[in-house]
Design a binder for these strands. Structure first.
Lengths: 229, 229
DNA sequence: CAGGCGGGTTAGCGGGCGTTAACCTCGGAA
DNA sequence: TTCCGAGGTTAACGCCCGCTAACCCGCCTG
């Protein structure tokens, strides 16, 4: 825990001692190079926003979470809104791009639509299990964005949804489009449900959970087609 | 069940005006038994909280939504927190009580566990489709409550979840408890997904949506059991 | 060795919001 | 008729919070 991050980290020679808490050393050692201050701030802000809501978190708290205090954040971001914007745009972009990549890959490999759908499901599960905070934010704090940014995020989200809808319809041609769309939203809700019970070890281990979610999601789409009557 | 958009929505409360005029006018005789001012406030507050978040709504706005202005709310509630508390306790209680009632009824009728589970699913779907705002609030603003009230709501929610877990395990004995619990949460996420796309008529009509959700939820539980291997 | 600039610091302003205070006005008992 | 309480009103207070201002320091570059 207390291990020094090795980085020089300007010694806070100044009085105050605010730095104390900083820690949490989240970073989870992603191989990614140099998690800059900026990214560190984004990570902590995302966590706090997910925990207590955008309006429920003050800039001083965000600063404290990374070991600096309050207004220093403005050296990195134009304001609190800008942090949320960057978080939400980033999430939506990653989801959409990842989905497009997987769908294109599956199609190029000549796999059937059902396998493409499975690839989308697996990708979303990875995201939901690995970035719980972001998933939470993503469908909870959208309305706190200024108009133009909100439009941008919504567009990305819509593209992601429509990608799924197209694949679902290819895999289950009997399903009408509006029901396919509703089913996609429902499965998103299903897959995104994990963040809510993240607290307390109520979940099985990651692999078991992932396998469970995969089974549930696939079965849901299969059942979405109207009953054979 | 018309959504009753009515709500006279008083004009911008001109200054000065002698208070007198307002008087009893409001609440035009809704067939419902005396929707008191109190309930009217709760309804509007719930809608606003769901739309913009607890911290994103001011008391003046809530007042304006029911035709009175700001501090008049304090004749009916101890404060803003009290409104959220009453909303969340009410939702959680209704969910739990409705679940207990249906489960007891199904059991008394000698139905098999799978039929009991179906009854729970149908009940939850009705709630999710008819009280979207409340469903949204219920798993989104819990953390804005003061400590003690939050504990109370969480307890109600837990009882509801455990009721489902018991029924699921009776219906699917092969499913381990932790996975059953995770599946229950996942299905809640699935069923509660409808509020998110309520805006814009993206959904099929109510009956179609309800039938679709029912199919998805049942299939999910059936698929939750580990693969036969 | 100078100097600028990246990245910190504290102090403080301005606005918004929850809440309280003081006051008003009815409708319905006593 | 009087009075009182329920349910409004506006004014205002105090706090919190986002953001700006003014200042400071150490590293890297010329």
């Amino acid at each position: 825990m207390g291990s020094m991050p090795a980085q020089p980290r300007s010694a806070p020679a100044s009085t105050t001692s605010t730095a104390g808490t900083a820690g949490t050393a989240g970073t989870a050692g992603t191989a990614a190079p140099a998690s800059s201050r900026r990214e560190q701030i984004l990570r902590e802000a995302g966590r706090l926003f997910a925990e207590r809501g955008f309006h429920g978190v003050g800039v001083d708290e965000i600063g404290a979470a990374v070991g600096i205090s309050g207004p220093a954040l403005y050296r990195h971001f134009a304001g609190k809104d800008a942090m949320l914007t960057e978080l939400l745009v980033g999430i939506s972009s990653r989801l959409r791009d990842g989905g497009l990549r997987r769908a294109a890959g599956a199609e190029a490999a000549g796999l059937p639509p059902s396998a493409t759908l499975d690839a989308l499901i697996d990708g979303h599960i990875d995201f939901a299990l690995d970035d719980r905070d972001l998933i939470t934010l993503h469908d909870r704090e959208l309305d706190r964005l200024p108009r133009e940014e909100r439009r941008q995020v919504r567009q990305l989200q819509r593209q992601y949804v429509e990608l799924w809808v197209a694949v679902v319809r290819a895999a289950h041609p009997a399903l009408p489009e509006d029901q396919a769309r509703a089913a996609v939203h429902a499965v998103f809700g299903l897959l995104n449900s994990t963040p809510h019970l993240s607290r307390r070890a109520l979940l099985p281990d990651r692999d078991t959970t992932a396998a469970l979610l995969r089974r549930l999601a696939r079965a849901a789409f299969t059942a979405a087609a109207p009953p054979p009557e």
